Amino acid sequence: MSRRQLVPGVEVVAVPGRGLAVRTADGEFLAVRTADARGDALLARLAGAATAPGDEELGRVVRAFEEAGYLADGPRQPAWPAARRNIRLLGAPVITGPLAAHLTALGADPHTAPAATAPGTPPVETADLLDGDPAAVVWCADGPVPGGLWDAADRLPEHGVAWLRCHREGWQAYVEPLAAAPGDVTSADVRARRLAATPAHRELAAYWRGPRTSGAPVRLTVPAAALLAALLADDLSRWATGAPDEAGLPARRRLRSVDLRTLTVTEHPVLPVPDVAPMPGKDG
């Protein structure tokens, strides 16, 4: 039977002249009041080693660590459930390629397919996306998303299929929250919230609708594509294994923007648009 030890990211350090301190998973330092407990015995116990029974003061300090959530039964990587292994990846190969590699390493079974986005192509239907019985569908667009492109995919959660997506607008990329159940944030919700949040809503709507005139195209660098793939893979892994949210905004209520020049990630809260609220028109 494994002994409880410090959780990953939590460490204890001996501070000269001040005793022990805990560095939390968030990077904060907290003083440890050990009273009569021996410091070396406490450090050994926190590392998972057996200690002599009957030391009440040591037991008190260890219980305090447990109550604070700093001890666990040992590092365990939750297995990817078989029922959620089938992941369908659509869109830009520059992102879906590294994403597939991440998912395979995590225990999923990703399948990549091109996305029909050319002008004149029949719109994608929900039934098309459900073909092959995927547990989740991920769509990565290396450019702005035309209105209506993701409408069918927004209905995937109604069929018990998780829906995750990202797209690029110039040097900014957006990783939208994973939607896994009715009532989660869809791409239509994100578009409506973004239009409502900017005074340039008419310009943004026109940008999405196109056409757009540009010079040399923005090309995703290998590090930028790897970052987007890593963010998507982490979201999928947490959904599949039921891992809890870490510090910050809840994963299903979080829009992340990525500056592709500096690889800076910024989180924004986003909520579903209530059914009673009218959705903004395409022209804002």
Rank of each mutant, 00 (worst) to 15 (best):
G143S: 09
R84Y: 12
A115G: 05
G284H: 01
A105V: 06
E28Q: 09
H201I: 00
R60E: 14
L6A: 12
M1C: 01
T266A: 14
V222T: 13
E67V: 09
R252L: 01
H268V: 02
V218H: 12
A82T: 15
G148V: 08
L255K: 05
L99A: 05
L231K: 04
A153L: 07
V276C: 08
R155C: 02
L178K: 02
A141Y: 03
Y207I: 05
L106K: 02
A108Y: 02
T221Q: 05
A72G: 15
T51A: 07
V145K: 02
L271T: 11
G69Q: 14
A226R: 15
A50L: 13
G143N: 06
P199W: 09
P272Y: 15
A251N: 03
L220C: 01
P272M: 11
A64R: 15
D133K: 09
P78H: 12
T241D: 12
Y207M: 12
S257A: 13
P93I: 15
P280I: 06
A173G: 07
A173M: 02
R168N: 04
L227D: 08
V258E: 04
D245K: 01
D189E: 05
G215R: 05
V218W: 15
E246D: 07
V222C: 07
L178T: 10
G147N: 04
L103W: 07
V137G: 05
P217C: 13
V10I: 13
A64M: 08
D189K: 05
A108Q: 01
G170E: 03
R165I: 04
P123V: 14
T24H: 12
G27E: 04
A152R: 01
L46M: 11
V258F: 06
A152W: 10
G147Y: 14
L30C: 04
T117N: 00
V15K: 04
G27P: 03
T24C: 03
P211S: 09
F29A: 03
L99I: 10
P217A: 12
Q5D: 11
P177M: 07
L71W: 13
A197N: 13
G27Y: 09
E57M: 10
R191G: 03
V190W: 10
A243F: 13
R212K: 14
D26Y: 03
D36G: 08
V61D: 01
T126F: 08
A216M: 05
L43K: 02
L129T: 05
P217D: 15
L255M: 06
L90I: 08
S237D: 14
G39D: 15
T126W: 11
H167P: 00
A179T: 10
T266E: 13
A14E: 14
G215T: 11
G9W: 14
A118E: 13
G215E: 08
